[in-house]
Design a protein around this nucleic acid. Sequence first.
DNA 1: TGTCGGCCTATACCTTGGTATAGGGTTCCC
DNA 2: GGGAACCCTATACCAAGGTATAGGCCGACA
Lengths: 210, 210
Amino acid sequence: MTAPMDSAHVFVVDDDGAIREALSSLFRSMGFDVRSFSTAMEFMAHDLPDLPSCLVLDIRLPLISGLEFQSQLARQNIHIPIIFMTGHGDIPMSVRAMKAGAVDFLTKPFRDQDMLDAVASAISFDRSRRLDEKSLLSLRERYSTLSPREQEVMAHVTSGLLNKQIAGKMSLSEITIKIHRGHAMKKMQARSLADLVTMARSLGLGHNGH
Amino acid sequence: MTAPMDSAHVFVVDDDGAIREALSSLFRSMGFDVRSFSTAMEFMAHDLPDLPSCLVLDIRLPLISGLEFQSQLARQNIHIPIIFMTGHGDIPMSVRAMKAGAVDFLTKPFRDQDMLDAVASAISFDRSRRLDEKSLLSLRERYSTLSPREQEVMAHVTSGLLNKQIAGKMSLSEITIKIHRGHAMKKMQARSLADLVTMARSLGLGHNGH
DNA sequence: TGTCGGCCTATACCTTGGTATAGGGTTCCC
DNA sequence: GGGAACCCTATACCAAGGTATAGGCCGACA
C-alpha cells in the first residue's frame, strides 16, 4: 500500500546472481535498503542494522540449508523475520519453516507483488517487535539498578500486599518497606502504583490467575 | 510421551472411510475420544464439547475445501486447532494453512507418530487456550456488572490517576469517586489495586508504553 | 403509587501511603 | 581512615485511600 515511512533493510541470500540482481532492484524500487549475499556465511559476517529489516532466503544454499540457517539464527537469538524462496521445495520443508516462525514461503517463480507483500508484512512485524524489545530492555535496565531488597519489596508491592504485610513477611519494620518502595518507584520511573504493576507484569514478576 | 490426563476429543473429517477407520482406532488407542465425519457439514452439525479438542482435516473435502472450511471456522470464531492431511497438496496450500494458524500439515502417507505428535501438541494448545478464555470470560462477566460510572472510574484508577484527579476529570466530588472505586473493587473481586490493574490490562483497558 | 437501582453528595473517622529528617549499622574499595 | 552504597530504624507530619452513615435526585418498572 504505502511506501515504508522510515528506512528499512532487506537482506537477500541466494546463490543465483540473477535472482539477487532482480530482487535487489525490485526492493530498491520500493525504497528499501538492500544488501545481498550468495551465502549464509557472508550474511553473518555483515553487521545487522538497528532498523526494521527482514531476510529473503533461498532454501537451498551452499554448505547449509535455509532451514538449518533459520534454526541457527534462532539459537543465537537473532530474530530477523525470514521469507523463504524455493525452486524445488516440498511441503514438509515449508511446514517446518512456517512452524519455526517464517513469515512466508514462496515457490519460484513467484509474482513480484507476492514477494513485496511478504516483505512489507515482515518489516512491519519487525518494526513492532523492535519497539516491544526496546521498551522491555529499558525496563530491565531500570530494574537492574534496584538493590536486592528493593526488588524484593517491588515484587510484594505489585502482587498486592500492604506495606505492613510485606514488613511481616520480610521481618522488617514498615518504615523500611516504605523507603524501599519509594526507591523502587523512583528508580523504575513509575508515576503511580498502576504503572509499577504494569512494569512488573512486563518483567514477568509476580503471580497470575484471577 | 504421556497419555492425555483428562478427556480430550479428536474430530476426524475425511471422505475416505478407510482413513477414518484407521485414524479413529489410532487415536482411541491413545485414550482420545474420537468422532469422525465424511464431510464438513456433518462436523458442523455436531455439538463441540467444552473440552480440549482438535480437528484432523483432509484438505480435499466434498463441496468445500479444507482451507475454505478453516477460514469459515475462523469467521465464526470457532478456535479448534486444525491438523491438515493431504495426498495431493502443494506448497502454497500448506503455507496458507499454516499462516491461518494450522497446527500442522501432513502429507499422506504419514507416520502414525507424526500424527500423534501433532494431535498431542494441538490438544495441549487448546487446553491452555481454553483456560485463558475461561478466565477472560469470567473477567468480562464481572466487568459487565459494573455501572457505566464504575467502569469509567475503574479505567482512570487503573491508569494511575489519584481519586482527586479523577474527580476533576469527571467533574464529581472525590467521595463519589471513592464510592464507585470501592464498588468496582468489590464487583471485580479484586483484593488489591494491583489485582485491579492486572484485570484492566487483561480486559484491554487503559494505556500502554513505558 | 411505591420501590428499586443507579447516581451524587456530605460528615466523620480510621487506615495506609509517602517523605523529610536523623540516626545507626555493615561491607567494599581507594 | 574516609567515602560510598546498601541496609535498617525512628519520629513526625501530611496526603491519599476506604468505609460507614445518611440523605437527595432521577428513571424504570410492577
